[in-house]
Design a protein around this nucleic acid. Structure first.
Lengths: 339, 339
DNA sequence: TTGAAAGCGGTACCAC
DNA sequence: GTGGTACCGCTTTCAA
């Protein structure tokens, strides 16, 4: 059924390959008489012809594939982002090649090399570490790059993200407004802009409101449930200096903190308030429903996709960092401090 | 930085392209003198050469890409499956092209055509509808196909799944053992083997145990939270013939049912027991933690990947349906019926 | 061990 | 409007 080439189609239709090629290309059909066109289409149908995208890509210089690099598909927060992306890109006939880094910058490099080898038309990176800027700049010499969610230290990259510092400030203010005087944050990998900005936002508010910050300096290796749990356990093991509220830098770590609490026989929010980040799809269904900072991930994906299309079309403006606003969603995992 | 061809490398190394090609191919290095090899490698490094996988694929007849077709990336249950797959396939240097059908068989067809056009080396389908058998058979003439999770009516496909009927029976028996005498199931799309088997398993036990089944015949269009909620609402609206326990055919629909309950001012499990299916990563953290049927999705992904590799290597046996066993995980969303 | 040249399956430019 | 042909970048025979 496969192995049918355009040559085969052309022969069956009694025309030259060049003609067959034109007849089957929507953009060049007009160069072919209606009669021939029909004959070729018929022959192609009969034979079950499928163009060889490799040959076409080799000749035309583009593939219709875009690379997407994410930290970890298991993070439910990524689903809306990917959906937003594919919505915009799929409509233009692009497919996406998704790969995971698991927060290892070496993987980012290796993946990008793979993607370059496959001659994808561009790459959307939502797994960047802050120091990946120079590397991504070299990639950007080869093909369009869009950074989603996470930015890098270096300027000059097309970036679509949201205001992490503000988000963290909203979360922290919420806790302090509830009367919590001793708070801590669970930090994600520090070389990731999202987390370092959140760390900063938290610190800013805590200082400003003269609240006691008993956070550990330790950061999670990956922002996962396991790591959140590990960090929270350490916090709880301390006899003194225990917070009454925790800001987890993402929802998965918040869930890990919930596990640690339960294990320690503590209740949320009665004994400990917890706020997460991302407002991933299922957070509202958790026990307890998680207070979280919402980030418009679907819109963000759409915008990143649009920016990629603009670069491909050559209509993109100068690289900028676009910021979407965060929003605090208050649910049952946070409550007034009991004095 | 790109556009560097092997020709460029060859020139810089002062050799013929053919020689350069051999020097850079691990499988044929031995044909080249150590000195030349080193010179070519150096030149390639200097120029930042990346092989053009299109050209190579065109010539060699394979691409190192495998297609993966899933219903919906938003389903958290898929993450472990994909991870299992990529674990096995990534180790052999394959990348995966993931596409979603959203339960529309027309999409499956279109996606497969795309994948064939891109000359992927094989396709793993976990989004099959029961009637897709003949179509997938034609695809299988072109390239290796492995069905994961869902089987089709037609025999003769390499299939890795688990025993859905048994899983549903476990869930239903659990409810009846708890004393529930009037039960209902929320059904997923009926042309999907997973769901039709679960429907059957449920019916079997209900009949055998002489329990009252008040399920609606209506099935969800997609097995999502929204649809689960819609079906559950309908069930709850009925003044009479209301069940005291619900078997939702997957976790997302169970969550939808939880929403409907809450909306109606009912509590789970006090007023209604609910059991889900898949034991997706976050179900244990839901409010209430969901009783669910566990399906070893990661192992299933690994096995599907291995089966694909075997087919590619030509070492695969005859097509069979491999069944993994399900396991009921009892949590807080189910409790004794109050008489 | 290396070079020369054909060819994978298309597209695009040039004639006619 | 159609045919001829070069060529995209690589691999692979065949000679030397």
């Amino acid at each position: 059924m496969n192995g049918v080439t355009m040559q085969d189609v052309a022969e069956r239709a009694g025309v030259h390959v060049g003609t067959a090629s034109r007849a089957l290309d929507p953009d060049r059909q007009y160069m072919v008489s209606a009669k021939t066109r029909e004959r070729v289409r018929q022959a192609a149908d009969d034979l079950g012809y499928q163009v060889n995208a490799l040959a076409r890509g080799l000749r035309k210089g583009f593939t219709g594939i875009l690379g997407v690099v994410v930290p970890d598909i298991g993070n439910p927060f990524l689903a809306p982002l990917l959906r937003g992306l594919e919505q915009v890109l799929g409509a233009r006939g692009f497919m996406t090649l998704v790969a995971e880094t698991h927060e290892d910058p070496r993987n980012l490099r290796q993946i990008c090399e793979h993607l370059i080898a496959r001659r994808v038309d561009g790459v959307i990176v939502s797994a960047a570490h802050q120091s990946d800027g120079p590397f991504l700049s070299t990639v950007a010499k080869t093909m369009p790059v869009v950074l989603a969610v996470r930015k890098v230290d270096e300027p000059g990259h097309y970036t679509v993200t949201h205001d992490d510092m503000l988000g963290a400030m909203l979360a922290t203010e919420h806790l302090i407004d509830l009367g919590h005087g001793t708070v801590a944050q669970l930090r994600g990998p520090d070389d990731v802009s999202s987390f370092s900005m959140r760390t900063e936002g938290f610190g800013k508010v805590v200082k400003q409101r003269r609240c006691r910050d008993v956070s550990s300096d330790e950061t999670a290796v990956e922002p996962t449930i396991q790591e959140g749990r590990r960090l929270a356990e350490r916090l709880l093991k301390r006899g003194h200096n225990r917070p009454t509220a925790i800001f987890a830098q993402n929802d998965l770590m918040a869930i890990g903190a919930l596990e640690a609490l339960a294990e320690a026989g503590l209740r949320c929010p009665e004994d400990m308030s917890i706020v997460g980040y991302n407002d991933a799809p299922l957070t509202r269904h958790l026990a307890p429903p998680l207070t979280s900072v919402r980030l418009p991930s679907s819109e963000l994906g759409q915008r990143a996709g649009a920016l990629m299309l603009a670069q491909l079309a050559g209509t993109a403006k100068e690289p900028t960092i676009e910021l979407f606003p965060p929003e605090l969603v208050v649910r049952a995992s946070t409550s007034r401090a009991t004095l």
